[in-house]
Design a binder for these strands. Structure first.
Lengths: 359, 359
DNA sequence: AGTTACGGTGAGAGCGCTCCCATCATTCCA
DNA sequence: TGGAATGATGGGAGCGCTCTCACCGTAACT
């Protein structure tokens, strides 16, 4: 029937249809339908209602791909989770973070594309990020000087980090890891512990570094010497925490600041297996306040960070960045707090005080 | 300077460039470059080499969105994880499943888009699935008669389920949950336990239903009466397992088949808190074989399923389906095996046998 | 030498949207 | 009541790719 590009429209009983089709059915132009869909242009109420009716009737959904291509916006946010160890993802931290991200993204009509960033997969992300499929990236647990971040920066891709990154060009959300760790360690010291050790996170992560620094600062405040034997690095898993505690036990700590609750759970198991009493023999303070923490035996004293809020903040920051790429980098530091439960032995001291008082 | 559609190309120092640009630079047509990129057409080796060289030099990456729109294929697979409870995702099961999916997808040059399927979010997925962004969906832990599945089916969206779905139109990968549960429960019975209880999963999940059925079948085989008091349903979390065990303890079981290792961990804590010996007082068998299981005290006897393989199989099945949408639904049942460790008390019986033998 | 075959290549038409600009009624101001 | 502003709509180009088809040159056949 000639080269007339009319074509289409007759391709059988497709589920959705196209803009053009809706336009035809409602007797207006494609442009008008487009305006209705993106409901911010000026269309007369009558027309709008009529078009909406047809759209509803036909069950029409705009083709996101076409929209992306034409507008340059995808309404998809990428999230990159490191997958160094095969089951980092099972850390409730990420679970919560993702949840926070998903909820906030949803409220902004954004889709979330999650990438498990095995180092070997990262090529996928920047491929995708550079080329229209996603508008921006939230990177979690980035490492110092991570070449991946460098690529994102150089490619001019909008991204924000969950966790401090030392580069003036990058925006991030974080908590005050140094201060929180100082507080947590200080708490043990205040309770009279003097051989306070720490099970740090992997030392390539900025969060680990900061928490370790807070630990040192607390020792300093109490005029205590930093002792290398009282520091081990874990990998944020239970197994890592357990192994760390095993090594630590050779040096007889009476308190341990553990850089994540998941590791604290492992540490706790090791202590129990060694027949040690918590908090009597060894007091424990964790970090994160995951659901499990309150159910441990004894319940874990820990630093609570609002992980879901962190995720939500990341989404908002990223969206801002996408809307105004020229804006300078911004940082958001969310509050955290020490949640005192039983594992630190605070109640022991209270009892002791009570006894003192009665004496 | 008129309305000549040449345009483009001069838009500043973009990172990537376009097909057209590469074509110009290498002195061939857009078509040829396209062939080179999709490296399966017939292009002379000389030309191909030259074009590849330019592509490399310019750091060109094809725009995936445009490619999607033109080809109708996105090379993105969606994965839907239920998010009923806020931290299901932290179950190592999903962690492993995702890992298996990610690795396999990567090897097929597919991206993975993960959706946390809060019931309220599902609109996002079918929006996306219906409209070009993704080619197909892997649904995990679907529920019987889930309206979401119905929508996917009716919309003609390619999808496969990880876990049995009773609908002849849907393809799935699964393990033999009934058989495995029968074997696990039978194992406890064979070891002489007679009050064998079970902590089932949430009963809307087919896996839970099947495992419960296997439990019943095992009782039948041993001529034991099914006792409703010995059955509780958990939610696949530690807390759920723990709560389940607490209720179960009122009815004095001497063995428990727990439908997931994560719940088994919770159950184990409860038993310990009650001062009961494992396996002496109560023997335990779990399901999944997550990393934690071998580190429990005592190590957990459990059903090992190759979760990552399950994920990989799902990817392959889905890709098949995408390539040939007319193919009839297929099912893949992967093997599973009982891993005997200490929590079931098998070694006790062996010792007993050994003693018998010496007597 | 005439035909067929085919490997290698280019041109054009879309994919389904958005966005800019043109058009045409209205309505407002002096 | 004439000219400008304003509101509502339509038309066209184009986002960057893929895909079909046409084309040309050379090798292989009769």
């Amino acid at each position: 029937m000639g080269a007339i590009p009319q074509g289409g429209s007759g391709e059988g009983s497709e589920v959705a249809g196209t803009l053009e089709e809706i336009a035809r059915l409602s007797g207006v132009s494609r442009s008008t339908v487009s305006r209705v869909i993106n409901n911010n242009a000026r269309v007369s109420p009558t027309t709008r209602e009529r078009v909406l009716e047809i759209i509803r009737r036909e069950g029409y959904r705009p083709n996101l791909t076409a929209r992306q291509l034409a507008s340059g916006r995808a309404n998809v946010l990428g999230v990159v989770i490191p997958l160094g160890s095969p089951d980092v993802l099972s850390d409730p931290y990420f679970s919560k973070l993702l949840h926070g991200i998903a909820v906030e993204a949803d409220s902004h009509d954004q889709h979330v594309m999650l990438s498990l960033a095995e180092p070997s997969f990262r090529h996928r992300i920047d491929e995708v990020a550079g080329q229209g499929i996603i508008d921006g990236v939230i990177v979690s647990a980035a490492q110092e000087g991570d070449p991946f971040l460098v690529r994102l920066i150089e490619a001019g891709i909008a991204f924000i980090s969950v966790g401090r990154v030392d580069d003036e060009r990058v925006s991030y959300v974080d908590i005050d890891n140094v201060g929180s760790a100082r507080q947590a360690t200080g708490h043990l010291l205040r309770l009279g512990r003097r051989r306070v050790a720490t099970i740090a996170g992997p030392l390539y992560a900025t969060a680990s570094i900061d928490r370790l620094r807070g630990y040192r600062e607390a020792l300093d405040q109490y005029g205590l010497q930093f002792d290398n034997d009282l520091v081990v690095a874990g990998d944020f898993t239970e197994a890592g925490g357990r192994a760390g505690m095993r090594r630590l036990l050779e040096h007889r700590p009476d308190g341990v600041f553990v850089a994540s609750d998941r590791m604290a759970a492992g540490a706790l198991n090791e202590l129990r297996a060694s027949g040690l009493q918590i908090p009597d023999d060894v007091a424990l303070v964790g970090f994160d306040d995951i659901p499990l923490s309150r159910e441990m035996e004894p319940p874990l004293t820990t630093v609570r960070q609002q992980i879901e809020t962190l995720g939500a903040a990341a989404v908002n920051l990223l969206l801002d960045l996408i809307h105004d790429p020229t804006a300078s980098a911004s940082r958001v530091i969310l509050p955290s707090e020490l949640v005192v439960r039983a594992s630190c032995g605070a109640h022991l001291n209270q009892e002791r005080k009570a006894i003192d008082a009665t004496t």
